[in-house]
């Protein structure tokens, strides 16, 4: 058992006693009851548990909560609410970028981070010119989103939603 302090969606959180075996995902879902972050595989293979840690997206099932002492975590609940959707959430609704909804919070957290990564000039596997700013193309979006599996198969619509938010044609 350890003590853990971090910031979640802008709010300081102190967990007096957390099992050192508890993943960041389970700390969010079971201790803080922020169940918007989903557990799909618990293996780092599906991406449903994607959250932003200090602005960078990670699979929250693949790190232990106690590794995040002092970190700044943003979950889907920190992006928007049903009454005040984040532009990416609103675009997912407009483009029907989801079906069952279970991978959706992870897709949206990744989508927000992907646009920021491209903006920041972070290259991907499909970036042809590592010396130039990566282009905001359909291919770049699809490559960077490939860690988030949607078994319902909403991919084509998710890319459309992201392109709308980015202000480009998919």
């Amino acid at each position: 058992m350890m003590k853990l302090s971090f910031e979640v969606n802008g709010t300081p959180c102190d967990l007096a006693e957390i099992d050192t075996r508890t993943t960041l995902l389970d700390a969010l879902r079971e201790h803080l009851r922020l169940t918007g972050t989903k557990k799909g595989c618990d293996h780092g293979q599906c991406g449903a548990c994607t959250v932003l840690v200090n602005g960078t997206r990670i699979n929250s099932c693949l790190s232990l909560a106690v590794q995040h002492h002092g970190d700044r975590i943003t979950t889907i609940e920190g992006l928007g609410t049903p009454g005040a959707l984040h532009p990416m959430q609103a675009a997912f609704v407009r483009h029907d970028g989801y079906q069952c909804g279970y991978c959706t919070p992870g897709q949206i957290c990744s989508a927000v981070a992907v646009l920021a990564e491209i903006e920041a000039g972070v290259p991907s596997h499909v970036t042809a010119d590592l010396g130039a700013a990566p282009p905001l193309t359909n291919l770049e979006i699809r490559e960077r989103m490939s860690g988030n599996i949607c078994r319902c198969g909403a991919y084509s619509n998710i890319v459309d939603a992201m392109a709308e938010v980015a202000g480009v044609k998919a």
């Binding site: 609410t81 959430q89 997912f92 909804g101």
Partner: peptide, 15 residues
């Protein structure tokens, strides 16, 4: 648009 969209996209639909 789906009427459950705002819940699903904000992680507030409970599974």
């Amino acid at each position: 648009d789906r009427i459950d969209g705002p819940l699903k996209t904000t992680g507030t639909a409970l599974y």
